[in-house]
Design a protein around this nucleic acid. Structure first.
Length: 291
DNA sequence: CTCCAGGGATGAT
DNA sequence: ATCATCCATGGA
C-alpha cells in the first residue's frame, strides 16, 4: 500500500527523540502504532506501508493510521515560517527539513517519558524495548516481530522489583504508581484532552514521576499542544548560549518567559528542531561549558 | 576511574 | 519562589 507524502522525512522523524521503539528493517522500519504492527518505508515522495496482516476489524484503515500518526496534515511550511528569524533557529530548521511532531498514543508517551529522566536516548530505547518484550503483545511484521507498548493495567500488575529489573532504577516506583492511577480509572488520559494547556499541564504534573519537562513532552507529543516547549539539558544549553551569552544570569523565570513569548504558536516544533540539531551535531565531549 | 544523561521529589532557606 | 541534594543505570 502506498501513501503520497511531501515535506516529510521518515528516518529523521523516527530518530529525533520523540519515539523510541522503531527499528530498521531492510530499506524501512518496523514498529507499532498503538496496537497495530506496521512496516514503513520511504521512497522519495511516497510511503510504502504494510500492516501485520492481523489488524482488528472495525478499526481505522492503515493509510489513515499512518497519516494521523506521522501528522502528515501539519502545515510544515507555515510552521517553519512562524519561527523567529534567528541564525541558530534557521540552522536547526534547515537541518530538520521534513521532521514532523508525531501524534503518539497517550499512555505510551506518558509512560515512556516517565522512564526518560536522566537517561540518554539510547537508554530510553533499551528500556522501552525491555518493557515491550516483557509486558507487551508480540506481532509478526515484515519477517520479524515487534511488541506493542503494554497497556497501563498490564504494567499496574507488575511489582516495583520486576520493573527495576528492566533497568528502570528509581523510575520504577513512579512508573508503577502512575500506571495504577491510570489503570484504576482515577486518571482518564483521554478526558484530559478536554483541558486547557494550563490545566492539562497541572493534571499531568500531579502524576508520580511527571514534572514540567515530562508534562510538556506529553502535551507536545500526545496531546497536540504544539506550543508546549519542553526544556531539557540540551535545550537549556542552546538557549543559554544563544540568548544569554558569556554566562549572563539566566533564571528559570527568564527561561520560561523566553520560550513562552519568543517561539510563536508552534514553539514545540521550534524546540524539537533545536533539540535534534544540537543533539546530533554537538560532540558529547565538547558539550560541557568549557569548549 | 570520572562524567553525564530529553528530571523529579523533597526539604531547607 | 528559588536552591541543593539524592535518586539508579549504563555508556563514553
Amino acid at each position: 500500500m502506498e501513501i503520497p507524502v511531501s515535506d516529510f522525512d521518515l528516518a529523521l522523524t523516527l530518530d529525533s527523540g520523540q519515539v523510541f521503539h522503531w527499528e530498521s528493517s531492510g530499506a524501512g522500519f518496523v514498529g507499532t502504532i498503538g496496537g497495530q504492527a506496521v512496516y514503513v518505508e520511504q521512497r522519495g515522495k511516497r510511503l510504502e506501508v504494510r500492516d501485520g496482516g492481523a489488524r482488528p476489524a472495525g478499526r481505522e484503515k492503515l493509510p489513515e493510521i499512518i497519516t494521523r500518526y506521522f501528522s502528515l496534515d501539519h502545515p510544515l511550511a507555515e510552521i517553519r515560517a512562524s519561527f523567529p528569524d534567528h541564525p541558530v533557529m534557521s540552522a536547526a530548521a534547515n537541518y530538520c527539513h521534513g521532521l514532523r511532531i508525531v501524534r503518539q498514543p497517550r499512555w505510551e508517551c506518558l509512560a515512556t517519558f516517565i522512564t526518560s529522566s536522566m537517561k540518554r536516548v539510547a537508554h530510553i530505547r533499551q528500556i522501552s524495548q525491555t518493557l515491550r518484550q516483557r509486558y507487551g503483545r508480540r506481532f509478526p511484521i515484515h519477517g520479524r516481530h515487534v511488541h506493542t507498548f503494554p497497556v497501563a493495567s498490564q504494567l499496574a500488575r507488575a511489582t516495583e522489583k520486576e520493573l527495576r529489573g528492566c533497568a528502570l532504577g528509581y523510575r520504577a516506583k513512579n512508573l508503577l504508581a502512575t500506571a495504577r492511577l491510570v489503570a484504576s480509572g482515577e486518571v482518564d488520559l483521554e478526558e484530559l484532552a478536554r483541558l486547557s494547556d494550563e490545566d492539562l499541564r497541572k493534571a499531568l504534573c500531579a502524576l508520580p514521576g511527571v514534572g514540567p519537562k515530562v508534562a510538556n513532552c506529553v502535551m507536545l507529543f500526545a496531546y497536540e499542544r504544539l506550543h508546549a516547549f519542553p526544556i531539557d539539558v540540551w535545550i537549556e544549553r542552546v538557549l543559554r548560549e544563544t540568548y544569554f551569552p558569556r554566562g549572563r544570569r539566566m533564571t528559570a523565570r527568564q527561561l520560561r518567559d523566553l520560550v513562552e513569548t519568543h517561539f510563536g504558536e508552534y514553539g514545540g516544533y521550534a524546540q524539537q528542531y533545536l533539540f535534534h540539531h544540537a543533539r546530533t551535531t554537538t560532540p558529547h565531549r565538547l558539550s560541557r561549558g568549557a569548549r
